[in-house]
Structure formats: C-alpha cells, structure tokens
Design a protein around this nucleic acid. Sequence first.
DNA 1: GTCTATACCTAGATAGAC
DNA 2: GTCTATCTAGGTATAGAC
Lengths: 200, 200
Amino acid sequence: MARKSGSHAQITGPKVLKAAERLFARHGFAAVTMRQIAAEVGVQAGALYLYTPDKQSLLADLMITHLRELLAALPPADPDPLAALEGFVRFHILHHLSRRDAVFVAYMELRSLSPGNFAAVEALRHAYEDHLEAILQRGMAAGVFRPRDSRLATLALIAMLTGVTTWYREGGRLLPEAVAEQYIALARDTLGALPDRGTS
Amino acid sequence: MARKSGSHAQITGPKVLKAAERLFARHGFAAVTMRQIAAEVGVQAGALYLYTPDKQSLLADLMITHLRELLAALPPADPDPLAALEGFVRFHILHHLSRRDAVFVAYMELRSLSPGNFAAVEALRHAYEDHLEAILQRGMAAGVFRPRDSRLATLALIAMLTGVTTWYREGGRLLPEAVAEQYIALARDTLGALPDRGTS
DNA sequence: GTCTATACCTAGATAGAC
DNA sequence: GTCTATCTAGGTATAGAC
C-alpha cells in the first residue's frame, strides 16, 4: 500500500514528540519502543527517523525543551520574600499539574540520559533550584523565614511540591488552584514564615 | 568447561536479589537485562531461572519484601504527637539513607509492575502512609498540629522526606543523624507544631 | 546447581521503492 | 514524507549435558 496521504512534516514532527512524551511518562523510556511511538503517531517506525536521529535524542529533546520552558515561564521573584515564595509555589504546582507528562519524564528518566545530555539537563535543574534558594536566602536574611540550611530547605520544598504529581487526579475533590493554596500554606509554615501565625 | 565450583543455592539466591536491586536502582527495570544480572552474580543467564520464574517476579519480590520490612520496622507511634512525628521522621530518613537502592526501586518502578503485583505494592504503600496520617490526625485533634487536610499534609510530608534520596551523598557534609534532625525540624514546622516556636 | 547452546522474538535503525 | 522490507544485535526464557 502506498502512503495514506500526502506530506505532513509540519504536523508529524510535534506529534512524534507528544507521543513520545506520553508513552515515556506512562511506561518509561526503556520500556517504550519506536514502533509504539510510531503507532501512536500513525506512521511506520522508519518514518520517525525523519524527525529524530535516534531514540536518545527524542528523550533529551523532550527534557531539555521542557526545562527551558519551565525556566522561561518562572515568574520574576517579588522583592517581598513571602510574596515571592507564594508566587513560586503557585507557579510550580500549576505548572506541574498542567504538564504532568513532561514533568514526570524530566524527573524519572535522568538515568536514561547519555552522559552529555545528563549534564545539560542537570544544569537546567540546578538553575531552577537556585531560583528558589535565592528567595529563601533573601527571606532568611530579612528575618521573614526561620534560619535554616537554605540548600536543604530548598530541596525539601521542591520535593514536597513535586510530590503533587504522585497523587493528584483530574476530577478529584480539589481544583488545581485550591491545591496550590494548600501547598502555599504548607511551604510558608515549613519555612517558619513569621507573620500571620494561625491565619493561613 | 564444567561449572566453576560446587553448589551455592543458599548463597546465590540472595546474591541474585541484591544484584537485581542494585542494577534496577541504577538503570531502571526495563533497561536491565537478565544477562547483566547474571554477570553481576557470576553465573550464566540461564541459571537465574533457578531462583525466579521470570524478571517481573524478581522486581515484585524486591518491592514487596522491602515494603514489608519497612512496615515491620516502623517504630510504634508515641502517644505524644510531637514525639510520634519525630520518631517517624527519624525512622523514615535513616531507613531511606541506609536502604537507598531498595527505596529507589520501590518508588520508581511502580509502573513496571504487572497489575496484580502493582495492587499488592500499593496496598503496602498505603498502609505506610496511613501510619503517618494517623499521627497527624491525633496531633490535629489534640491541637498540637495546625488543622490541615490530613491526607494532603501526609503526602506532602512523605514526598519531602523521601526527597532526601535524590541529593544525599555518602561522605557529604552531613551525617545521616544530622540530616534526620534537619528534617524533623522542617516537618514540625510544616505542621505548625505548637510548642517551641523559634527553638528548633 | 550450573553450564552451554539455542529457540524465538523484538529491538533500533537503515535502504530503496513510491 | 512515508512505506515496506530488512539488517544486526540483543532480549527473555528453555533444554539438555554434566
């Protein structure tokens, strides 16, 4: 049989990435085959190689693109540490709930990256963590947050927030914005934020 | 050539599980081959099937055994909510630092489980979460912890604590017991624990 | 109890027709 | 740009010698 229809380069390329993201998130990079991705896109396996040199590049592209977008979408930190924390937490939660597949892949498939790609991804993750740590350090210096090991607190907070992806289900009892509010209250207390004791 | 030496069933069995745990933690279940496991143990691939019916059972055995041990080792909850929280956090951190490979596999390879094995593992994880949630609920009822959505707070805390596995390196600046103390302080504050404001 | 040998299958990736 | 067909490598799991 000839090809199903004409040329679709402009449309097929993004579809390949989307399909790979979905499948990698659900089954893991190593467990997904190029044929599965192709089936999801609606082409034959060989055709995928028009859009990626190999499977590894597909993964690296997904992760690096996602992390770049994450960094670019990060809201500028408010001068007020409490407001900055709130802005960061809301952003993190809403982003993680709206881009679940990409987030999941970015966290779970670090070990599937080649060394070179791993280094690139780690640098981007590091930049993201540094953004939050700077907020924490300013808050601690200002006496708004309880003095702490800022690195450990940063990593603890990010782990706490990212955990939302493991339990949140669409259509559950909480809307994303409500989830964000809950995590904002938790984060504020975790840092021992000073004003508003008991009102959050 | 004949076999290298005599019979080693008693020793080879555990070695297979240990090797699988190590390799699954480092590379992921799907990425690890039976030949790799066999090489790590020092036997040929075929010999593994004396100790496991298949690769999937190897994974399920590792996860279920680990989670059973985790539950069995859980310290009984102190009647005092703050002491109970402290005991839980210390236990969780020290356990997660001392059994890193098993913990990592248990968290990362849920999606590699067959449906039946997944259900068994989920039940065990659920029991563990329930243990912490009960502590939180008692503390909230007693007015020691700030009123919260106890389920969300439970999952947030566990995510925060479990995150230690992503950054802790042996030989780093903090000993495990010091890490546990830091997380105890964070957990106490996350729950808005009432006494001792400012002294932790 | 472990080995060697191998059956059988599916993987990633490429070549050439259309 | 996509297909079909195919190469080569390596996967899980089994059979039978020792």
